[in-house]
Simulated assay, not measured.
Amino acid sequence: MRFLFVFLLLISRAFANDDQALDGQQWLQKVNHAMKNMNYHGTVVFMKHGQIDTMKYRHTFENGVETERLSSLNSPLREVTRHSNEISCLYKESQQKVETHHPIDRSFIVNLPLKPERLHDQYLFAVAGQEMIAMRPAQVIAILPKDDLRYARKLWIDTTSLLPLKVEVYGQDGKTLEQVLFTELNLEDSAAPSDAALTAAEAEDDSHQHVSQAEAFEKSPFELKKWPAGFEKIFFIRNTMQQSKKTVDHLLISDGFSSVSIYFEAKGEKSIEGLRTLGPVNSYSRVIDDLQVTALGEVPLQTVELVAKSVSLR
């Protein structure tokens, strides 16, 4: 981890512009505002788990509500829409539609903390040089963790619109774990109507939508005694699986960049324990009495292990 930190820091210093008026935190604040309030569309490439997925993307902000839509260009054909914190996924071939409710608004493109200044003890936000992305000049921001409990990132920001054009996440060995890249980005008139907004508005009339609501984690039978500095409890949901009628509780903690989900469920016939890895996603499972606990997230192995081992029964 120290090698990666020094390597990215040297890159940032080598290309730093002494005349740059904004620091790293200020760039991130402006990106947050632009992502939420502007209307834009384009083509996005997601590279993760060794796979490449190219999708059409559209974002609108109308009447104070965000709407995002991702439409796949390759099989399996699907369309994912977020209307504020209501998310739906339509599989084109089968016409199956899955709808969920997320207690917080989360971008399909990149997760950023609303107040990055609160994380100055956990991250260094370094202003690096400028590069061309999708034929647009982009400012590079290196987001470097000060511990071994989260991943480093680089963010390429369109200097005109202040929208994110590219995001890379790096493992502790310095290798790229995942990448999101706009190959084409177009800005729209803020007053122009959008197909995504209309689709989402129609979805609101669906009387068959059933979602779980967030609850107070303090009222649960579980306790989380320790988690990495900078992380906060975001929500706690109690879900009942439709087929098995099994209850699975879900606690999400996040520092704005990285998130860890902790799942609590009754131990099955075959319990799961120990570490597992799939690309940038790591998980750690353990058994407490008759309870199966799993911590999972795009964070280093030691982070999910720390979180899972910090769970206890009240």
Rank of each mutant, 00 (worst) to 15 (best):
A152K: 05
L28Q: 02
I262Y: 07
L163W: 03
S285P: 07
T183H: 04
Q95K: 15
P221L: 01
E305L: 07
D121K: 14
L124Y: 05
V180T: 12
W27K: 11
N239A: 06
Y263S: 07
T294L: 03
T159V: 13
H83P: 01
K146S: 06
V311R: 04
N74C: 00
L4S: 11
A196I: 13
L275D: 11
E269M: 10
S271Q: 09
L149Q: 05
T43W: 08
V140S: 02
V80K: 12
F264G: 08
K246I: 14
P280H: 01
A21L: 07
E178S: 05
G24L: 00
G297I: 06
G274T: 08
D158F: 03
S190H: 12
H49F: 10
L296F: 12
L112G: 05
M35S: 14
T240S: 08
S88V: 11
S107E: 08
T183E: 13
P221Q: 00
L251G: 03
Y151H: 01
A128H: 11
M241S: 11
G64Q: 11
Y91K: 02
V304N: 06
E269A: 12
T303L: 05
S72F: 09
S283N: 14
F46E: 10
S244F: 14
W227R: 09
S71Y: 04
K175D: 12
R136K: 14
Q172D: 09
V127E: 13
H41A: 13
L162I: 10
G279K: 05
Q302I: 12
K225L: 15
I237L: 05
L155Y: 08
K246W: 06
W156F: 13
L278T: 09
I272E: 15
Q213V: 07
T159P: 00
T81F: 03
N32T: 01
Y57K: 10
H102R: 06
F182V: 00
L112M: 04
S161W: 07
E188Q: 15
I133Q: 02
K36M: 07
G171D: 03
D205E: 09
S71K: 14
W27E: 04
R2I: 14
L275F: 11
